[in-house]
């Protein structure tokens, strides 16, 4: 009995997931078509870029600072075990550039900007503002969705590049403070072992995560149903979908990228 319920729940969940995945894919196709040739609203793009970057900068900076600290503490355990202070800069830098920086900053970005975006689009949808746009012969995809996708991709890319730097400085700060390491030890450990490839690897991930967050948050925003309760559900569904996309894409990109 309970087994049946669980199985049918999983079945329903799977069907639901496929439907949403299909919807997101269709939206992605529409966005790509609107980009060739680019048809998008300049003022709307700059408004979103400013808002999204500006709104999330403080929380991302704080997150990055502490993430740097966490990485160094983890590395510090290894240092004490193996007595290998020369590896801290390398280990923390490698982890921050390739994995932890892009992923954690993307998760925070999704919580801050993605969920806000879903709430805004969902409110517009339930109050018929999207139909209002169509009635003005303005296609909501190039006007509303495309600028947001570009803005989120660009701003997450910038935030990750900036956040990585802050994380490294945060890491250096805590390494000097907690592990009594010299700045120069950390610096040479980093620059001797970390190459451009590690940086590019993380930057590509950031851009892909940014567009994934944008697609999921826009999709759940414009396909919302059922008033104010629907808006809350849409936000919840969007952040969950964004988290799943981030982790699965991270896996795929790790396998594909050098």
């Amino acid at each position: 009995m309970l087994g049946d319920v669980t199985i049918s729940a999983i079945g329903r969940g799977t069907l639901f997931a496929w439907r949403e995945l299909g919807g997101i894919t269709i939206l992605a196709g529409q966005v790509l078509r609107a980009l060739l040739p680019p048809r998008l609203d300049g003022p709307e793009l700059f408004r979103n870029l400013y808002r999204m970057g500006n709104r999330s900068l403080p929380i991302i900076a704080l997150t990055a600072f502490f993430v740097g600290g966490i990485m160094v503490i983890q590395a510090g355990v290894l240092v004490k075990q193996l007595n290998a202070a020369g590896l801290v800069g390398w280990g923390a830098g490698y982890a921050i550039f390739r994995e932890v920086g892009p992923m954690l900053i993307a998760l925070m970005f999704s919580g801050r900007v993605g969920s806000n975006n879903t709430a805004e689009l969902a409110t517009m949808t339930v109050t018929e503002q999207l139909d209002g746009l169509r009635a003005l012969a303005i296609d909501p995809i190039p006007y509303l969705v495309v600028p947001r996708v570009i803005a989120m991709t660009v701003s997450l890319l910038c935030l990750v590049v900036l956040g990585n730097l802050i994380a490294l400085y945060g890491g250096a700060f805590f390494a000097m403070f907690l592990l009594d390491l010299e700045f120069s030890t950390l610096y040479y450990s980093l620059v001797d072992n970390i190459g451009w490839l590690d940086f590019v690897h993380g930057a590509i991930k950031a851009a892909v995560f940014g567009s994934a967050i944008a697609m999921t948050s826009c999709y759940f925003g414009i396909s919302v149903r059922g008033g104010a309760v629907g808006v809350g559900k849409a936000v919840n569904a969007a952040v969950v979908a964004a988290a799943i996309s981030i982790v699965t894409l991270d896996f795929l990109l790790t396998a594909v990228l050098p």
Binding site: R47, T123, M124, Q129, G132, R134, A135, L136, A137, D139
Partner: peptide, 20 residues
């Protein structure tokens, strides 16, 4: 439909002005 929408305008019941 977009060319038609340029010739037929609509004023919605709840006005649907853009909040932002």
């Amino acid at each position: 439909f977009y060319p038609v929408r340029k010739r037929i305008g609509m004023v919605f019941q709840h006005a649907t002005l853009f909040d932002s």
